[in-house]
Simulated scan of single mutants.
Amino acid sequence: MPIGGPSDSSPSRSRRRDAARVKAKELRVSQKKKDRRNKVFLQGGMAIAAVAIVVLVALVIVNSIKPAGPGPKNMASDGALIGEGLVTARTPALQPDANPRPSEADPTGAVANIRLYVDYLCPLCADFEDANTEQIAQWVDSGAATVEIHPIAILANKSAGTKYSLRAANASACVANYSPDDFFAFSSALFVDQPKETSPGRSNDELKNVVTDSGVSEALSSINSCIDDGTYESWVEAATDRSTAGPIPNSSIESIIGTPTILVNGKPYTGSFDDPKEFASFVQQALGETYSTSTSTPTPATPAP
């Protein structure tokens, strides 16, 4: 009688081992397929997420950039021209990418043309405004002078991130568009209790209060919406770029390098900003020089100091 177990025990173990190896191989193949699928799904998910992020960033950028639109009416020269009776000259809106149309100086040489390039956050602009606005208003009201005010925003990054210069200039453009004969009063009012550089400046609601306090009574709802919407901010930026790149028409300077820049009959004023007598003397001198080269003969109506 043979010693040991059943005669087929070894083959059975061998078959079991072979079966186990086959099963393990199948599991490995299956796992590799699953890993490849997961990798594909992961890469696809990452690609989708990346596309979503790109789209989101693009939307944020697009929404943060205001499309170029027409400028305000009555500022086709990039400034508001105010004449006798403090009436603002009417002009059509400047279309996107259109060149400004310089205002024409008085052909007789008898009227002083004063041009002011101002930033509503500029403290020197406030000094000049405080010292000279009353006499300029008298000259312009009587017809002895015109004043053309160009709001620009070269200090837009000096207000704790609120871009006050840009918003204030936009507000002035809103007034010029909807209530042009109130532009001079509103522009002057922006310099009263002027915010300091590096401060946030006035909020939009506070700018709207200045509109009301300065005596603007026409189209208040439209002006307020214009301020909130930043309707003319892209135009202000374009006008600022034009002034700082130059050329400055009908003047002896190439570009605006700081504010205030004050031109009288095209000549830059370099005297004291807070001395009204010195400025009045300069206006008379510039007016006299212009008149002496004019071919017309009327007696010039020079502004009184």
Rank of each mutant, 00 (worst) to 15 (best):
Y232H: 10
I227Y: 01
N177G: 12
K158H: 15
S272D: 15
S179P: 00
N224Y: 14
L86E: 00
R16Q: 12
V57H: 03
S9Y: 11
F128V: 09
Q285H: 09
A49C: 13
S199F: 02
Y164I: 00
S203G: 03
P247K: 09
L263F: 10
L287C: 11
E148A: 07
R16N: 11
F282I: 05
G79W: 00
F273D: 02
A131W: 06
Y269T: 05
N74V: 01
F41I: 13
L155H: 02
A169L: 04
V210M: 07
A49S: 12
G85L: 02
K196T: 09
N170I: 10
A20L: 14
G201F: 01
G109V: 02
V147L: 04
Y269F: 15
K277E: 15
Q31M: 12
V51W: 15
T231I: 10
I154C: 02
A301W: 05
N113L: 10
A144M: 07
S252T: 15
G288C: 14
T295E: 14
D35P: 03
G69W: 06
I3R: 15
R202V: 00
A144C: 03
R13W: 11
G161M: 01
A93H: 08
A93K: 08
S199N: 04
G69K: 08
E206C: 07
P11Y: 08
S12M: 12
D274K: 07
K23N: 13
A304P: 03
I257H: 06
S159Q: 01
Y178Q: 09
S252N: 13
G109M: 09
A50I: 11
G161R: 00
G109I: 03
F41L: 14
P72A: 09
P123R: 04
S188E: 12
S217E: 05
K23D: 13
P200A: 03
P92Y: 07
T133L: 08
Y269D: 06
V236F: 05
G71C: 06
S172T: 06
I65L: 13
P303Q: 10
D97P: 10
A24S: 14
F183L: 00
T198G: 01
T198F: 11
S243W: 04
S221M: 07
I257W: 04
K73T: 07
T290Y: 10
F128W: 15
R167D: 11
F279T: 02
R21E: 15
S281K: 13
L27C: 06
W139K: 02
D241S: 12
T231P: 05
L287I: 09
Q31G: 03
